[in-house]
Nucleic acid binder design. Structure first.
Length: 573
RNA sequence: GCGCCCGUAGCUCAGUGGAUAGAGCGCUUGCCUCCGGAGCAAGAAGUCGCGCGUUCGAAUCGCGCCGGGCGCGCCA
């Protein structure tokens, strides 16, 4: 919010050639130096004078209102001593007015967005590496919705391919022939083992691998019996995956099946467009190959992109072209896809091919992998930490804590709290790091409940709830006066006022990591306030009311910010 | 080899041109008759990978190295 708009307006009145964006306010390095500072660099550039001179002119030539008590020059900075209570009142009013929307810039109002994320192969229980995609995607979805976008969340179900063919064979050997409409007699949790075994066997046994290919070929021809087998297996896996992801609060609107895009008529137009550019050829072994150098690709690496095998079956990347066109047709405003960094070249190739045919590729958001201490995870090799195991352990640990802290609550209430705390620990641990950094997975640090963690922030909220319970009303009355005595109160105010800016930063970076960082800063600012400023035992009733309002404003801000991360606040924990 | 990403305290990470580079974990020392100790206060710990440049000013921008991750024609 423009907390300092009254000050900015006064300066703009004195210097009409300045733009509002030139006036950047920030906290002073130390409260003793001032309540907040204005940097003179941008205004100085605008007026073509030296920053220290600009600072002096602003201080001298602006007629400030009574909310400015004094100014002090410090080189290129103007430090302000202001009426803190005036701005505290302004901040609290604004937060209460906006409520659940405090922080939103409403930049998506009237717009639609389509986000594809997760899109795990339906072959086994998801591991925590895959979950990074889902959590990043889900948080971006929450951010876009907060900004007012009408968002549709898509999950691409890769229900084709050799891997699935092999899995079908392996499961049939285990439980008998898969028939149309019948549920396979195998639990979701057992599929990972079957998948690992199937891949191992395909490596060792050529005839088994060949059977996988021929099953895939029948699938692609549209053979109804084969389709039923594939669907039986992929549905089992997809349903299992959705349940695990739902535990993290991650949900989807649309499931798009790859098998629906096999013989898509739109693909013919693409090949025609490539032919017109002389960018596609059939190689000596009969494969249909795109030569991207004809489309402006300059490197030798990634120059060739195979669309179809010699036996006439299509590659994943071919079917994906049709799917992308399908998505783009549905949403013009903002079309995002969350991809692992290993897909960068692939996405570039897809983009070039589509552009050659007059289409566009979505805006890609990349993330680096979560790796184990001894290398990357691999579902195919069974070298994974399963998301469900990870969540179970997080829930077990938080339940232990809640048991000892909340004995007066019912078992159901305690369970609900324990789950929220576990989700907070897991989501926060993943989301707080910059997505393009590798994360080395470590059970202890990602399940920690103390320090820079989601539960630490929830704990601040629980303390606020506790104070407000004793204070006696949910939201303190908005009264005309506001009282503020300490630096801690003021610094908390400043921190809360930064939230809308942080949301815009996250939006432009397409990352919720700044939100996570912000939430920690805000919780720390609150904790300092909490220790230095008694609320219920405040010296005067006016101070007590003001501090209670600050508590409520903090809780609203934390609730909104944590919501973007998919973390719920709790009143008890 | 080529392309993209990363390199900041012992460890995990913030800090996308501005005041003395900040947190957490771990370590040392204190703090629960005091609104919740999942917490707080204090201390020790840094050639911001290395070098050269741009700038009044660089952890931040450019170039070159070094180290790590990912990718580079019939996997998805």
């Amino acid at each position: 919010m423009e907390l300092f708009a009254p000050i900015a307006d006064a300066i703009l009145k004195a210097f009409p050639s300045l733009e509002p964006a030139d006036l950047v306010f920030s906290p002073a390095p130390k409260p003793g130096m001032g309540d907040m500072a204005l940097r003179a660099f941008l205004p100085a550039k605008r007026l073509g004078i030296a920053p220290p001179d600009m600072a002096k002119r602003i201080a001298d030539e602006t007629s400030f209102g009574p909310e400015v008590k004094s100014t002090a020059l410090a080189g290129p900075y103007v430090n302000f001593h202001i009426d803190r209570a005036f701005f505290g009142r302004r901040l609290a009013d604004h937060v209460f007015d906006m409520g659940a929307y405090f922080g939103s810039g409403a930049t998506g109002a009237g717009k639609t967005a389509l986000v594809e994320h997760t899109s795990i192969n339906p072959n086994a229980s998801p591991h925590v590496g895959r979950a990074r995609n889902a959590m990043i995607g889900d948080s971006i979805v929450r951010l876009l919705r907060f900004e007012g976008y009408d968002v549709s969340v898509h999950y691409y179900v890769n229900d084709m391919g050799r891997q699935i063919g092999l899995l079908v064979l392996a499961i049939e050997e285990k439980v008998g022939v898969l028939a149309e409409g019948a549920e396979p007699d195998i639990r979701f949790e057992e599929v990972l083992d079957a998948y690992v075994q199937a891949n191992q066997r395909a490596e060792d046994d050529e005839s088994f691998a060949a059977k996988g290919y021929s099953l895939l070929a029948r699938m692609e021809e549209g053979d109804p019996e084969t389709r039923a087998k594939f669907h039986a297996v992929t549905n089992l896996c997809l349903n299992g995956q959705i349940l695990v992801l739902a535990r993290l609060g991650i949900n989807y609107d649309v499931f798009d099946r790859e098998s629906n895009f096999v013989r898509d008529p739109r693909l013919d137009a693409i090949v025609a467009a490539l032919q017109a550019r002389n960018a596609v050829f059939t190689d000596e072994e009969g494969r249909l190959v795109v030569d991207l150098s004809a489309l402006g690709h300059t490197q030798e690496e990634g120059r060739y992109f195979v669309l179809m095998r010699a036996n006439g079956s299509s590659m994943y990347g071919y079917r994906d072209l049709a799917y992308t066109i399908h998505k783009m047709e549905q949403c013009a405003d903002l079309n995002l896809i969350i991809l692992g960094e290993d897909h960068k070249l692939y996405a570039q190739q897809q983009s070039m091919i589509l552009e050659a045919a007059g289409h566009q590729y979505p805006e890609a958001v990349y993330y680096a992998y979560i790796v184990l201490k001894d290398g990357k995870m691999s579902t195919r090799q069974g070298k994974v930490v399963l998301l469900s195991d990870f969540l179970d352990e997080a829930a077990r640990r938080s339940a232990e804590k809640v048991e000892e802290q909340c004995r007066d609550l019912s078992p159901e209430e305690r369970r609900s709290i324990a789950i929220k705390v576990a989700v907070a620990a897991v989501r926060f641990a993943i989301l707080r790091v910059n997505p393009n950094k590798n994360v080395v997975f470590d059970w202890e640090s990602s399940l920690s409940f103390s320090g820079d963690t989601g539960p630490y922030v929830q704990y601040s909220c629980a303390r606020i709830a506790s104070i407000l319970r004793k204070y006696g009303m949910d939201v303190p009355p908005v009264s005309g006066s506001f009282t503020m005595e300490t630096d801690a109160e003021w610094l908390l105010c400043l921190k809360l006022s930064e939230f809308p800016t942080v949301v815009q930063t996250a939006l432009s970076q397409r990352s919720c990591a700044p939100i996570a960082q912000y939430v920690l800063d805000a919780a720390r600012a609150f904790t300092t306030f909490y220790h230095e400023c008694p609320v219920l035992d405040a010296a005067t009733p006016a101070l007590r009311d003001s501090r209670a309002q600050l508590c409520a404003a903090t809780r609203q801000t934390l609730r909104n910010a944590l919501g973007l991360l998919g973390i719920e606040i709790v009143d008890r924990m």
